[in-house]
Amino acid sequence: MTSPTPPSTGASVRLNRVTKRYGGLRALDDVTLHIEAGEFMTLLGASGSGKSTLLNIIAGFTKADSGTVEVGGRDLTGVPPHKRGLGMVFQQYALFPHMTVFENVAFPLRRRRVPKDELVKRVREALDIVELGHLRSRMPAQLSGGQQQRVAFARAIVFHPQVLLMDEPLAALDKRLREQLQIEIKRLHRELGITFVFVTHDQQEALAMSDRIALLRDGRIVQVGTPDELYERPAELYAAEFLGESNIFRGTVRGGVFTDGASGAGLKVAGAPADGPAAIVLRPEKVRILLPPDEVPPGHNALSGVVRELIYLGGERRVEVGLADGRRVIARLRSDDPHGHVPPGTSVIACWRPEDALVLRNGSAAAAAPDPQPVG
Protein backbone atom coordinates (compact mmCIF):
# COMPACT_ATOMS: atom_id res chain seq x y z
CA MET A 1 0.00 0.00 0.00
CA THR A 2 1.35 3.38 -0.99
CA SER A 3 0.74 6.23 1.47
CA PRO A 4 1.96 9.50 -0.02
CA THR A 5 2.41 12.52 2.15
CA PRO A 6 -0.98 14.27 2.39
CA PRO A 7 -0.95 17.02 -0.27
CA SER A 8 -3.32 19.26 1.67
CA THR A 9 -4.99 19.64 5.02
CA GLY A 10 -8.65 20.10 5.58
CA ALA A 11 -10.53 23.35 5.83
CA SER A 12 -13.22 24.28 8.31
CA VAL A 13 -16.85 24.50 7.15
CA ARG A 14 -19.25 26.94 8.79
CA LEU A 15 -22.96 26.98 8.06
CA ASN A 16 -24.66 29.99 9.61
CA ARG A 17 -28.46 30.14 9.94
CA VAL A 18 -29.12 28.30 6.68
CA THR A 19 -32.76 28.05 5.61
CA LYS A 20 -34.20 26.40 2.50
CA ARG A 21 -37.88 26.28 1.54
CA TYR A 22 -39.69 24.36 -1.18
CA GLY A 23 -43.06 26.06 -1.38
CA GLY A 24 -44.56 25.86 2.09
CA LEU A 25 -42.10 23.17 3.21
CA ARG A 26 -38.97 24.11 5.14
CA ALA A 27 -36.34 21.58 4.07
CA LEU A 28 -33.83 23.36 6.33
CA ASP A 29 -34.86 25.59 9.18
CA ASP A 30 -32.24 28.05 10.46
CA VAL A 31 -29.41 25.48 10.59
CA THR A 32 -26.07 26.45 12.12
CA LEU A 33 -23.22 23.93 12.09
CA HIS A 34 -19.47 24.37 12.50
CA ILE A 35 -17.20 21.59 11.16
CA GLU A 36 -13.56 21.65 12.24
CA ALA A 37 -10.70 21.46 9.75
CA GLY A 38 -9.75 17.83 9.15
CA GLU A 39 -12.85 16.49 10.89
CA PHE A 40 -15.01 13.57 9.73
CA MET A 41 -18.53 14.92 10.15
CA THR A 42 -21.55 12.78 9.31
CA LEU A 43 -24.96 14.27 8.54
CA LEU A 44 -27.38 11.59 9.76
CA GLY A 45 -31.14 11.41 9.47
CA ALA A 46 -34.15 9.75 7.95
CA SER A 47 -35.42 10.50 4.45
CA GLY A 48 -36.67 14.07 4.32
CA SER A 49 -34.62 15.21 7.32
CA GLY A 50 -32.65 17.73 5.24
CA LYS A 51 -29.23 16.10 5.29
CA SER A 52 -28.75 15.87 1.51
CA THR A 53 -30.14 19.36 1.03
CA LEU A 54 -27.55 20.64 3.50
CA LEU A 55 -24.75 18.82 1.67
CA ASN A 56 -25.91 20.23 -1.69
CA ILE A 57 -25.93 23.74 -0.26
CA ILE A 58 -22.30 23.27 0.84
CA ALA A 59 -21.46 21.97 -2.65
CA GLY A 60 -23.30 24.84 -4.33
CA PHE A 61 -25.77 22.64 -6.23
CA THR A 62 -28.64 24.07 -4.17
CA LYS A 63 -29.05 27.73 -3.26
CA ALA A 64 -30.15 28.55 0.28
CA ASP A 65 -32.94 31.06 0.79
CA SER A 66 -30.98 32.62 3.64
CA GLY A 67 -27.80 32.04 5.63
CA THR A 68 -24.15 31.70 4.66
CA VAL A 69 -21.63 28.98 3.83
CA GLU A 70 -17.96 29.48 4.68
CA VAL A 71 -15.10 27.10 3.86
CA GLY A 72 -11.69 27.87 5.31
CA GLY A 73 -12.91 31.33 6.28
CA ARG A 74 -13.99 32.12 2.70
CA ASP A 75 -17.63 33.00 2.07
CA LEU A 76 -18.86 30.67 -0.70
CA THR A 77 -22.53 31.60 -0.50
CA GLY A 78 -22.73 32.99 -4.05
CA VAL A 79 -19.89 30.99 -5.61
CA PRO A 80 -20.86 28.42 -8.30
CA PRO A 81 -20.03 24.73 -7.63
CA HIS A 82 -17.14 24.45 -10.09
CA LYS A 83 -15.34 27.35 -8.41
CA ARG A 84 -15.65 26.11 -4.82
CA GLY A 85 -12.79 23.63 -5.06
CA LEU A 86 -14.65 20.92 -3.15
CA GLY A 87 -14.45 17.18 -3.87
CA MET A 88 -17.72 15.31 -4.33
CA VAL A 89 -18.55 11.59 -4.29
CA PHE A 90 -22.06 10.58 -5.37
CA GLN A 91 -24.11 7.50 -4.56
CA GLN A 92 -24.17 6.33 -8.19
CA TYR A 93 -20.42 6.84 -8.87
CA ALA A 94 -21.04 9.05 -11.97
CA LEU A 95 -18.07 7.59 -13.88
CA PHE A 96 -17.73 8.21 -17.62
CA PRO A 97 -18.37 4.79 -19.22
CA HIS A 98 -16.32 5.57 -22.37
CA MET A 99 -13.17 6.51 -20.38
CA THR A 100 -10.62 4.26 -18.73
CA VAL A 101 -10.04 4.37 -14.99
CA PHE A 102 -7.00 6.58 -15.60
CA GLU A 103 -8.95 9.02 -17.78
CA ASN A 104 -11.85 9.19 -15.31
CA VAL A 105 -9.50 10.16 -12.50
CA ALA A 106 -7.60 12.58 -14.75
CA PHE A 107 -10.75 14.43 -15.81
CA PRO A 108 -10.76 17.07 -13.02
CA LEU A 109 -7.08 17.80 -13.70
CA ARG A 110 -7.62 18.23 -17.45
CA ARG A 111 -10.38 20.74 -16.73
CA ARG A 112 -7.90 22.63 -14.56
CA ARG A 113 -5.26 22.46 -17.35
CA VAL A 114 -2.71 20.72 -15.15
CA PRO A 115 0.52 20.00 -17.09
CA LYS A 116 0.82 16.44 -18.39
CA ASP A 117 3.73 15.31 -16.17
CA GLU A 118 2.01 16.63 -13.05
CA LEU A 119 -1.31 15.11 -14.18
CA VAL A 120 0.19 11.64 -14.62
CA LYS A 121 1.92 11.88 -11.24
CA ARG A 122 -1.24 12.93 -9.42
CA VAL A 123 -3.46 10.32 -11.07
CA ARG A 124 -1.04 7.51 -10.24
CA GLU A 125 -0.77 8.79 -6.68
CA ALA A 126 -4.56 8.95 -6.27
CA LEU A 127 -5.03 5.45 -7.68
CA ASP A 128 -2.32 4.11 -5.39
CA ILE A 129 -4.12 5.62 -2.40
CA VAL A 130 -7.28 3.68 -3.26
CA GLU A 131 -5.18 0.64 -4.25
CA LEU A 132 -6.34 0.53 -7.89
CA GLY A 133 -3.16 1.47 -9.74
CA HIS A 134 -3.05 -1.94 -11.40
CA LEU A 135 -6.51 -1.36 -12.97
CA ARG A 136 -5.87 2.07 -14.49
CA SER A 137 -6.36 0.81 -18.08
CA ARG A 138 -9.73 -0.84 -17.46
CA MET A 139 -13.14 0.54 -18.39
CA PRO A 140 -15.75 1.13 -15.64
CA ALA A 141 -17.89 -1.76 -16.95
CA GLN A 142 -15.00 -4.12 -16.19
CA LEU A 143 -14.96 -3.16 -12.50
CA SER A 144 -16.98 -4.34 -9.52
CA GLY A 145 -19.25 -1.91 -7.68
CA GLY A 146 -16.70 -1.46 -4.91
CA GLN A 147 -13.90 -0.79 -7.41
CA GLN A 148 -16.04 1.77 -9.23
CA GLN A 149 -16.71 3.57 -5.97
CA ARG A 150 -12.99 3.67 -5.20
CA VAL A 151 -12.36 5.19 -8.64
CA ALA A 152 -14.92 7.85 -7.76
CA PHE A 153 -13.01 8.57 -4.55
CA ALA A 154 -9.73 8.83 -6.45
CA ARG A 155 -11.29 11.29 -8.90
CA ALA A 156 -12.64 13.36 -6.00
CA ILE A 157 -9.25 13.69 -4.24
CA VAL A 158 -6.91 13.93 -7.25
CA PHE A 159 -7.06 17.74 -7.39
CA HIS A 160 -6.24 18.01 -3.68
CA PRO A 161 -9.47 19.47 -2.29
CA GLN A 162 -9.56 20.62 1.32
CA VAL A 163 -13.11 19.32 1.79
CA LEU A 164 -14.61 16.08 0.46
CA LEU A 165 -18.42 15.81 0.32
CA MET A 166 -20.03 12.36 0.13
CA ASP A 167 -23.73 11.77 -0.51
CA GLU A 168 -24.58 8.24 0.69
CA PRO A 169 -21.71 6.77 -1.37
CA LEU A 170 -22.12 3.25 0.04
CA ALA A 171 -25.90 2.90 -0.12
CA ALA A 172 -25.91 0.85 -3.35
CA LEU A 173 -23.39 -1.74 -2.12
CA ASP A 174 -24.01 -5.03 -0.35
CA LYS A 175 -23.41 -5.26 3.40
CA ARG A 176 -20.00 -6.92 3.31
CA LEU A 177 -18.59 -4.60 0.67
CA ARG A 178 -20.08 -1.59 2.45
CA GLU A 179 -18.28 -2.55 5.65
CA GLN A 180 -15.00 -3.01 3.77
CA LEU A 181 -15.28 0.42 2.19
CA GLN A 182 -16.11 2.00 5.53
CA ILE A 183 -12.63 0.94 6.64
CA GLU A 184 -11.13 2.26 3.40
CA ILE A 185 -12.84 5.64 3.82
CA LYS A 186 -11.58 5.95 7.38
CA ARG A 187 -8.07 5.16 6.14
CA LEU A 188 -8.37 7.80 3.43
CA HIS A 189 -9.46 10.37 5.98
CA ARG A 190 -6.58 9.54 8.30
CA GLU A 191 -3.95 9.62 5.54
CA LEU A 192 -5.12 12.69 3.63
CA GLY A 193 -6.08 15.05 6.44
CA ILE A 194 -9.04 16.29 4.37
CA THR A 195 -12.27 17.45 5.98
CA PHE A 196 -14.94 14.83 5.24
CA VAL A 197 -18.66 15.64 5.23
CA PHE A 198 -20.57 12.38 4.85
CA VAL A 199 -24.34 11.92 4.40
CA THR A 200 -26.05 8.69 5.44
CA HIS A 201 -29.30 7.36 6.88
CA ASP A 202 -27.47 4.29 8.24
CA GLN A 203 -26.95 4.69 12.00
CA GLN A 204 -24.32 1.94 12.25
CA GLU A 205 -22.35 3.51 9.41
CA ALA A 206 -22.41 6.85 11.21
CA LEU A 207 -21.29 5.33 14.52
CA ALA A 208 -18.46 3.39 12.90
CA MET A 209 -16.94 6.16 10.79
CA SER A 210 -17.48 9.59 12.30
CA ASP A 211 -15.52 11.95 14.50
CA ARG A 212 -18.82 13.73 15.13
CA ILE A 213 -22.41 13.24 13.99
CA ALA A 214 -25.04 15.88 13.29
CA LEU A 215 -28.47 14.26 13.65
CA LEU A 216 -31.18 16.02 11.64
CA ARG A 217 -34.95 15.85 11.84
CA ASP A 218 -37.47 17.88 9.83
CA GLY A 219 -34.83 20.34 8.67
CA ARG A 220 -33.39 21.01 12.11
CA ILE A 221 -30.35 19.68 13.95
CA VAL A 222 -31.43 17.58 16.93
CA GLN A 223 -27.97 16.98 18.37
CA VAL A 224 -24.30 17.23 17.42
CA GLY A 225 -21.67 15.15 19.18
CA THR A 226 -19.29 12.23 19.03
CA PRO A 227 -20.73 8.76 18.36
CA ASP A 228 -20.29 7.95 22.06
CA GLU A 229 -22.15 11.10 23.10
CA LEU A 230 -25.11 10.52 20.81
CA TYR A 231 -25.41 6.84 21.71
CA GLU A 232 -24.72 7.01 25.44
CA ARG A 233 -26.18 10.47 26.16
CA PRO A 234 -28.92 11.31 23.65
CA ALA A 235 -30.29 14.80 24.20
CA GLU A 236 -33.90 13.81 23.57
CA LEU A 237 -36.05 10.80 22.81
CA TYR A 238 -35.81 11.13 19.04
CA ALA A 239 -32.03 10.74 19.21
CA ALA A 240 -32.37 7.73 21.51
CA GLU A 241 -34.91 6.10 19.18
CA PHE A 242 -33.10 6.81 15.93
CA LEU A 243 -29.56 5.91 16.96
CA GLY A 244 -29.58 2.29 18.00
CA GLU A 245 -32.20 0.18 19.75
CA SER A 246 -33.64 1.39 23.06
CA ASN A 247 -36.04 0.37 25.79
CA ILE A 248 -38.04 3.51 26.60
CA PHE A 249 -40.35 4.00 29.59
CA ARG A 250 -42.44 7.13 30.10
CA GLY A 251 -43.62 8.29 33.47
CA THR A 252 -42.92 10.74 36.28
CA VAL A 253 -39.99 11.47 38.56
CA ARG A 254 -40.76 12.42 42.14
CA GLY A 255 -38.34 12.43 45.02
CA GLY A 256 -35.64 10.74 42.95
CA VAL A 257 -37.88 7.78 42.03
CA PHE A 258 -39.29 7.17 38.56
CA THR A 259 -42.84 5.85 38.39
CA ASP A 260 -43.65 4.03 35.17
CA GLY A 261 -46.80 5.55 33.69
CA ALA A 262 -48.08 2.26 32.24
CA SER A 263 -47.55 -0.21 35.10
CA GLY A 264 -47.09 2.07 38.10
CA ALA A 265 -43.82 0.30 38.92
CA GLY A 266 -41.25 2.34 40.83
CA LEU A 267 -37.82 2.32 39.18
CA LYS A 268 -34.63 3.62 40.74
CA VAL A 269 -32.74 6.28 38.78
CA ALA A 270 -29.21 7.57 39.14
CA GLY A 271 -28.54 11.07 40.44
CA ALA A 272 -31.34 13.37 41.52
CA PRO A 273 -33.39 14.37 38.46
CA ALA A 274 -35.89 17.16 38.94
CA ASP A 275 -39.49 16.20 39.64
CA GLY A 276 -41.88 16.05 36.70
CA PRO A 277 -42.67 14.11 33.51
CA ALA A 278 -39.68 12.14 32.25
CA ALA A 279 -38.58 9.14 30.23
CA ILE A 280 -36.04 6.41 30.91
CA VAL A 281 -33.80 5.28 28.03
CA LEU A 282 -32.22 1.86 28.54
CA ARG A 283 -29.96 0.29 25.92
CA PRO A 284 -30.44 -3.50 25.40
CA GLU A 285 -26.79 -4.32 26.15
CA LYS A 286 -27.27 -2.90 29.67
CA VAL A 287 -30.03 -5.40 30.50
CA ARG A 288 -29.29 -8.66 32.33
CA ILE A 289 -31.56 -11.70 32.20
CA LEU A 290 -32.07 -13.81 35.35
CA LEU A 291 -33.89 -17.09 35.81
CA PRO A 292 -35.98 -17.52 38.97
CA PRO A 293 -34.99 -18.27 41.70
CA ASP A 294 -31.88 -16.20 40.87
CA GLU A 295 -31.67 -13.22 43.18
CA VAL A 296 -31.70 -9.72 41.76
CA PRO A 297 -28.41 -7.96 42.66
CA PRO A 298 -28.78 -5.29 45.35
CA GLY A 299 -29.80 -1.88 44.03
CA HIS A 300 -30.87 -3.15 40.61
CA ASN A 301 -34.22 -2.51 38.93
CA ALA A 302 -36.13 -5.64 37.99
CA LEU A 303 -39.15 -6.45 35.82
CA SER A 304 -40.61 -9.93 35.51
CA GLY A 305 -41.77 -11.32 32.20
CA VAL A 306 -41.73 -14.18 29.70
CA VAL A 307 -39.31 -14.70 26.82
CA ARG A 308 -41.14 -14.01 23.55
CA GLU A 309 -38.34 -14.20 21.02
CA LEU A 310 -34.73 -15.39 21.00
CA ILE A 311 -32.65 -14.37 17.97
CA TYR A 312 -29.10 -15.56 17.31
CA LEU A 313 -26.87 -12.77 15.92
CA GLY A 314 -23.48 -14.44 15.87
CA GLY A 315 -21.51 -13.01 18.79
CA GLU A 316 -24.66 -12.10 20.67
CA ARG A 317 -28.29 -13.06 21.16
CA ARG A 318 -31.27 -10.72 21.18
CA VAL A 319 -33.79 -11.66 23.86
CA GLU A 320 -37.27 -10.13 23.82
CA VAL A 321 -39.04 -10.29 27.18
CA GLY A 322 -42.81 -9.68 27.27
CA LEU A 323 -44.10 -7.89 30.36
CA ALA A 324 -47.49 -8.44 32.02
CA ASP A 325 -48.81 -5.13 30.65
CA GLY A 326 -48.10 -6.19 27.05
CA ARG A 327 -44.91 -4.21 26.52
CA ARG A 328 -41.50 -5.70 25.94
CA VAL A 329 -37.94 -5.29 27.16
CA ILE A 330 -35.07 -6.13 24.81
CA ALA A 331 -31.75 -7.51 26.05
CA ARG A 332 -28.62 -8.22 24.04
CA LEU A 333 -26.45 -10.91 25.62
CA ARG A 334 -23.18 -12.49 24.62
CA SER A 335 -23.74 -15.78 22.84
CA ASP A 336 -21.84 -17.62 25.58
CA ASP A 337 -24.13 -16.20 28.30
CA PRO A 338 -26.24 -19.18 29.47
CA HIS A 339 -29.19 -16.86 30.11
CA GLY A 340 -29.25 -16.07 26.40
CA HIS A 341 -30.23 -19.64 25.57
CA VAL A 342 -33.57 -19.83 27.37
CA PRO A 343 -36.39 -20.85 25.02
CA PRO A 344 -39.51 -18.75 24.34
CA GLY A 345 -42.13 -19.17 27.03
CA THR A 346 -39.59 -19.19 29.87
CA SER A 347 -40.28 -16.92 32.87
CA VAL A 348 -37.37 -14.56 33.45
CA ILE A 349 -36.40 -11.34 35.19
CA ALA A 350 -34.96 -8.39 33.24
CA CYS A 351 -32.76 -6.26 35.49
CA TRP A 352 -30.34 -3.36 35.23
CA ARG A 353 -28.35 -0.91 37.32
CA PRO A 354 -29.95 2.54 37.75
CA GLU A 355 -26.76 4.22 36.52
CA ASP A 356 -26.96 2.29 33.24
CA ALA A 357 -30.19 4.06 32.24
CA LEU A 358 -30.59 7.67 31.16
CA VAL A 359 -33.40 9.93 32.41
CA LEU A 360 -34.59 12.49 29.85
CA ARG A 361 -36.63 15.56 30.73
CA ASN A 362 -37.64 16.79 27.27
CA GLY A 363 -41.34 17.38 27.54
CA SER A 364 -42.07 17.87 23.84
CA ALA A 365 -40.15 14.76 22.84
CA ALA A 366 -41.80 12.67 25.54
CA ALA A 367 -45.25 13.89 24.54
CA ALA A 368 -44.67 13.00 20.90
CA ALA A 369 -43.26 9.55 21.57
CA PRO A 370 -45.37 6.39 21.15
CA ASP A 371 -46.11 4.03 24.00
CA PRO A 372 -42.91 2.73 25.63
CA GLN A 373 -41.31 0.16 23.36
CA PRO A 374 -37.91 -0.67 21.91
CA VAL A 375 -37.23 1.00 18.61
CA GLY A 376 -34.53 -0.35 16.29
Rank of each mutant, 00 (worst) to 15 (best):
H160L: 03
G255W: 04
G87P: 05
R187A: 11
A350F: 02
D356I: 01
L177I: 15
L165W: 08
D29E: 07
G314H: 08
R334D: 09
P115V: 02
K63Q: 15
Q92N: 15
L44F: 07
L216S: 05
A208K: 00
V101L: 04
R327A: 03
H160N: 15
D211Y: 01
H341M: 09
T9M: 13
Y312C: 00
K20P: 07
R112K: 15
L28D: 08
S47C: 08
H160S: 12
E229C: 05
L313R: 15
R122T: 02
G87K: 11
E39V: 05
A37Y: 01
V18L: 05
A272R: 15
K83G: 14
I213K: 01
R176H: 14
L127A: 09
E125A: 01
D325E: 12
P140Q: 12
A368C: 04
V375Y: 13
G72N: 07
D30P: 11
F107R: 04
V253P: 03
L25D: 08
V123L: 07
H98Y: 04
G60V: 06
L290C: 09
D228G: 07
P227W: 02
D65W: 01
R84D: 01
T19I: 10
V13I: 07
D29W: 03
L358A: 11
R74Q: 15
L43E: 09
L313M: 12
P338Y: 02
S144M: 13
A235E: 09
G219I: 01
M166K: 14
E131W: 11
G85M: 03
A94H: 13
Q204L: 04
R150W: 08
H160I: 02
D325N: 13
V287Y: 06
E295P: 00
N362V: 08
A64Y: 02
G363Q: 13
R250H: 13
D294P: 03
G326F: 01
F90M: 06
T9A: 13
E131S: 00
Q147H: 13
E36K: 15
A214C: 06
I280S: 08
P6I: 05
E241Y: 09
A369S: 14
F96T: 07
V163I: 05
L119P: 04
D260V: 00
T77H: 11
I248N: 11
E125S: 12
E229S: 12
V348M: 05
P292A: 10
S144W: 07
L282Q: 11
F153N: 07
Q148S: 12
S364L: 11
A46C: 13
G345N: 10
K186E: 06
L358W: 01
Y93P: 09
R176T: 14
V257S: 03
L282R: 11
A366T: 12
M99A: 00
L358D: 06
V120Q: 12
A324C: 04
S66Q: 12
I58M: 08
N16T: 14
E232K: 13
S49N: 13
R250Y: 04
